[in-house]
């Protein structure tokens, strides 16, 4: 039995304190959202008289629910699109041998070097010419596929033995079915990693939705929150409630799926 050394205890304690400091902003945000205007300047973490009035007021006005739904729609559709197309392209580049394969791969990979900010103005121009400003499609179109996802999926598909696929081919499955029914189930960890990253990225995205959306009905949560906060003329309890509403969903999902999310992040980080 190894004895617990004092160094270990100190390290553990420091790590624990650090961890608590890390979540302090979140705790303050939550606690302030449960205070009314008269308690805001009382900086205790546990509210003296907790109240859900802020939540009731903000949620009953309907905008936050709308923004929440918008964010969900956008993040889910973009995630599905990435899971489908990135893996389809990754699979094709990993498992098919044809002339031009390498060029396609390099071309797609090269887009990683181009910052979104550079494309934003042409996208804006494109969106205004095609009437995509202020629409779900306008928010979503730039992110429907990503080079990062394609690269990630290619890495994972390369790890699948060709025999599996050959066997399916002999069984008479067509290529699409081979990909969808045989190859895809073999890379589910990678798919979940891709899905987690894409969802999180789109859920928290601010820059492009801020530019492309016009009317409050189409805001995503981050953009809505930002405009809401400005409009509240610095009523901190209201702003913190809005921030909590924007932040809590991902935190709650995390509590349930912690294992998968952490594993997904590790996978994406290592292979990516």
């Amino acid at each position: 039995m190894p004895r617990v050394r004092p160094g270990r205890i100190i390290a553990w304690t420091l790590l624990f304190i650090g961890g608590v400091i890390m979540v302090t902003p979140l705790l303050f945000m939550l606690s302030t959202s449960l205070k009314d205007a008269s308690q805001v300047y009382d900086l205790r973490i546990i509210p003296a008289a907790p109240t859900f009035d802020n939540y009731i007021e903000i949620l009953s006005d309907g905008r936050f629910t709308r923004w929440f739904v918008n964010s969900m729609i956008v993040a889910i559709i973009v995630t599905l699109s990435n899971v489908f197309f990135d893996s389809l392209v990754g699979y094709t580049l990993a498992k098919f041998r044809f002339r031009g394969r390498y060029i396609v791969f390099v071309a797609i990979l090269s887009t990683l070097m181009i910052p979104t900010e550079m494309l934003v103005l042409p996208w804006y121009l494109m969106a205004s010419q095609f009437g995509w400003l202020d629409s779900y499609w306008g928010i979503m179109f730039p992110g429907m596929m990503t080079a990062f996802g394609t690269f990630l999926m290619k890495q994972f598909f390369e790890g699948i033995p060709n025999d599996f696929l050959e066997a399916a081919r002999i069984d008479g499955l067509n290529e699409f079915a081979i990909w969808w029914k045989i190859a895809m189930p073999l890379v589910t960890p990678a798919l979940s990693a891709l899905a987690i990253f894409t969802f999180l990225g789109n859920w928290t995205a601010f820059f492009w939705p801020l530019i492309v959306t016009t009317s409050a009905e189409l805001y995503t949560l981050p953009v809505g929150l930002s405009s809401f906060a400005v409009e509240q003329s610095i009523q901190w309890e209201k702003i913190m409630t809005g921030a909590s509403i924007a932040t809590l969903p991902t935190l709650i999902i995390f509590l349930f799926l912690q294992r998968y999310i952490v594993r997904g992040v590790m996978l994406a980080g290592l292979k990516g």
Partner: peptide
């Protein structure tokens, strides 16, 4: 989890905090 949680927050929201 304590260290990881902030990664899941929305930057636009946390800036206000």
């Amino acid at each position: 989890a304590l260290y990881f949680l902030p990664f899941l927050t929305t930057a636009a929201a946390m800036a206000w905090v």
